[in-house]
């Protein structure tokens, strides 16, 4: 055997070993898919590893949707879109003011905003609950959008500040000489250039909001307001009548949006998340 053949055998052995390990790693996902596609009695009596070909998952999805997952999905879509979009907007404008308009003591203003990523969320919960009840926005959609906007601004500002630092100054100066106002420069020149970072931050924050459990638990109570994670976490207790496959189907439904976002963006996303996980508070 020559050197090349030995190398090839090594690579194939390595790939096969890794394939087996990764399959084992994703076995819980296989368990989820297989058992979401069962009826209650098939699940209760049967083998958990057995594949049953059928369409039970559709019935399970309809049941789950009607038992609260539907509301949860719609609420979380609203919170994800509105919360993330507004946060990115405010962060974009603020980062522009800090970097491009050279606000006095810019670093201090930036650090004030960025301080929102440093403390664990346990520090926020009690006063937010107290204030939300006092102001009358506890258990309202507006209240949840507001909290997600506030929580997402710091990280978005951090990323967009990085973007503005890379834009050449000549562009801005030329536009100034042409008589453009600062807002026109932001809107007509910076916005088109910033599309990629804006979209990335938007999707990272959307994912974070979609996956958040804690603020949904603390600031909302009724099914019409609760986000998907909170509905899912309460499923076992709230609806004792719900069977395993239905809850597993609900789990799958709650995971699809963020899974799709990840598969679309992959590595860009991971790099963003590595940094974002500091304040993503997934722990």
């Amino acid at each position: 055997m020559n050197y090349k053949t030995i190398e090839r055998i090594k690579v194939i052995t390595g790939l096969s070993a890794m394939a087996v390990i990764v399959m084992a790693w994703l076995y819980p996902v296989f368990f989820l898919l297989v058992n979401a596609n069962k009826t209650a009695s098939q699940y209760a009596k049967g083998d958990k590893t057995e594949i049953i070909w059928g369409t039970s998952i559709i019935d399970n999805a309809i049941t789950a949707w009607n038992k609260g997952i539907g509301d949860g999905v719609l609420n979380s879509l609203l919170y994800g879109f509105a919360g993330s979009a507004l946060a990115v907007f405010f962060a974009f404008v603020a980062a522009y003011g800090i970097v491009r308009l050279k606000i006095k003591n810019g670093l201090i203003w930036f650090l004030i905003i960025y301080s929102g990523t440093v403390f664990p969320f346990q520090m926020y919960l009690l006063p937010l609950f107290e204030a939300y009840v006092a102001v009358g926005i506890y258990n309202t959609k507006i209240g949840l959008i507001l909290v997600y906007v506030g929580l997402c601004i710091p990280f978005a500002t951090f990323v967009l500040r990085g973007f503005f630092l890379t834009v050449p100054w000549e562009i801005q100066e030329a536009a100034k000489i042409e008589g453009a106002t600062n807002f026109q420069i932001l809107h007509k020149i910076m916005l088109p250039m910033a599309k990629a970072p804006l979209l990335l931050v938007f999707l990272i924050q959307f994912t974070w909001i979609w996956n958040d459990l804690l603020f949904g638990m603390v600031l909302s109570r009724s099914v019409g307001v609760r986000p998907i994670t909170t509905v899912l976490a309460g499923m076992k207790d709230l609806y004792a009548s719900l069977d395993g496959p239905t809850i597993l189907t609900a789990t799958l439904m709650a995971s699809i949006p963020t899974l799709l976002i990840f598969l679309l963006l992959q590595k860009h996303f991971i790099r963003g998340l590595t940094l974002g996980s500091m304040n993503a508070g997934k722990g």
């Binding site: 603020a94 003011g97 800090i98 520090m123 204030a131 506030g150 929580l151 710091p154």
Partner: peptide, 19 residues
């Protein structure tokens, strides 16, 4: 610039720093 930075600072102040 203060008008650009103010909304973000106020929101972070209310949701993060005050608590």
């Amino acid at each position: 610039a203060y008008f650009y930075v103010a909304p973000a600072v106020i929101l972070v102040g209310l949701i993060c720093i005050y608590p």
